[in-house]
C-alpha cells in the first residue's frame, strides 16, 4: 500500500511502487483529465504537479510521489488555484483547443511556469516558448497557446 496525496485527498493505492502515477490516476482512480500521449516523457500530455513542479506522470513512479502533493488538471482548474484558474480562463477565451487532447498537459505546464515567475513579472515570448517546448500539440494550437499564456500572465499581475 502506498499513500498518495492527490488534490488534497489521501488515497491508499495497492500497486507496484514502480507503476507510473499516470496509470493509477487514469485506470485505478478514474481521473482521466491527465492524458496518455507517449509513455516516455516526450510529449507532455500527462503533465501533473508534484509539490507545484510540473512533472510527466507517465514516467514518474508512485514511489517518487510518496509524501508529496500531487495536483492534477481537475484540481488546478477548478477555481481554487488563482494561477490555474487564470490559465484555464485564458484557454477558453482564446479558444486554444482543437482536438484538446494535449491541452491538460499544456495547461499544467503553463500553470507551473507562471506560478514560478516572480510576482508581477511578465514573461517574454521566448521564455514562454522555452517553458512550453516539452509539450507537443499535433493540432498546432501553439499560436493561441502563446497568446493565452501572455494574457493569463497579464491578468495575474
Amino acid at each position: 500500500m502506498i499513500t498518495l496525496n492527490i488534490n488534497g485527498n489521501q488515497h491508499e493505492v495497492d500497486a507496484d511502487p514502480e507503476t507510473p502515477i499516470l496509470w493509477v490516476l487514469r485506470d485505478t482512480l478514474g481521473m482521466t483529465g491527465t492524458k496518455f500521449g507517449c509513455g516516455a516523457a516526450l510529449c507532455g500530455a500527462c503533465t501533473i504537479h508534484l509539490d507545484g513542479e510540473a512533472v510527466r506522470s507517465c514516467s514518474t513512479p508512485l514511489s517518487a510521489a510518496e509524501g508529496l502533493n500531487i495536483t492534477t488538471i481537475e484540481k488546478a482548474t477548478d477555481g481554487s488555484d488563482r494561477v490555474g484558474a487564470a490559465v484555464s480562463a485564458a484557454w477558453v477565451k482564446h479558444d486554444v483547443a482543437q482536438c484538446g487532447y494535449c491541452q491538460s498537459g499544456q495547461i499544467m505546464s503553463a500553470t507551473a511556469f507562471l506560478a514560478s515567475l516572480p510576482s508581477g513579472s511578465q514573461p517574454t515570448a521566448s521564455e514562454i516558448d522555452t517553458a512550453m517546448e516539452g509539450n507537443i500539440c499535433r493540432c498546432g494550437t501553439y499560436t493561441r497557446i502563446r497568446a493565452a499564456i501572455a494574457d493569463a500572465a497579464s491578468n495575474l499581475v
Binding site: E74, Q103, I107
Partner: peptide
C-alpha cells in the same frame, strides 16, 4: 467544447 477542453473535463 472550449470549457471542457480547458479543464480536463472532455
Amino acid at each position: 467544447d472550449a470549457q471542457a477542453k480547458s479543464s480536463g473535463q472532455q
